[in-house]
Amino acid sequence: MNTMHMMRVIARKEITNIRRNKGLLVAGLYVGGLFGVLNVLLSGHVSAMNNTVFSTALLVGVFVGYSFSGQVFLREKREKVIETLLCTPLSLKAIWLGKVVGATVPAYLFSLLSVSLVILVSNRITPSLLLPSIPVLIHVFGVVPVFIASTISAIGLGQFLLGMRENKIMGFLIVGLLLPFMYPSILGGLVRGEMGSVVSWLDVGSCLIAAVLLLAFTTYASRYLNKEKIVTTLLAD
């Protein structure tokens, strides 16, 4: 069976499911929209736009991606729908990867939405045309989707491997880690803007390395993923 085709089938179903979940979409719009606009307005410096785009794209993508992975991985496990899917001729890896793609695509779209808002609002409050720098464009269109996908694959793996109680703890930890990062990133943008610093190739490269390292770790950890682990953790709570 064509694994790529099956992954696409799963991803398409997950995207449809997310598209029809109004609560999730509203949460995504809230995080993506509000965070993007707030970032610009609070920093107040148009020279900080590149910095704001840099951090907003990442944080919104990861935050929204986390909430989508809850629908794609955790909910399906909690409601035991996953058991029927595990009985199909698909490999566990194809199921996992299909779900990662299914959560990454809409999360990335929300990330792009917030980036668009940052650029739009920045241009509204300045008379001259502001465009993102080349490293920032490479970051948004090259690094961010990889970063979101690697984060979602790690979160999804954790949600599959852990019991429901452990998943709750993981959820608190992720939100607890992301939130303090989101607001200092606004302040960071402000400070860096004032100092006139710009997003460098080093920043972009560091993000890419972080994403690749996370992906490597997740790929390594995925060897512990098996059907029995999913089913027994589903029975545990």
């Binding site: 179903k13 029809r20 979940n21 409601e79 035991k80 729908v81 058991e83 029927t84």
Partner: peptide
């Protein structure tokens, strides 16, 4: 299975 395994949306 005991659970219907359907997608409600």
């Amino acid at each position: 299975l005991a659970n219907d395994g359907l997608y409600e949306r």
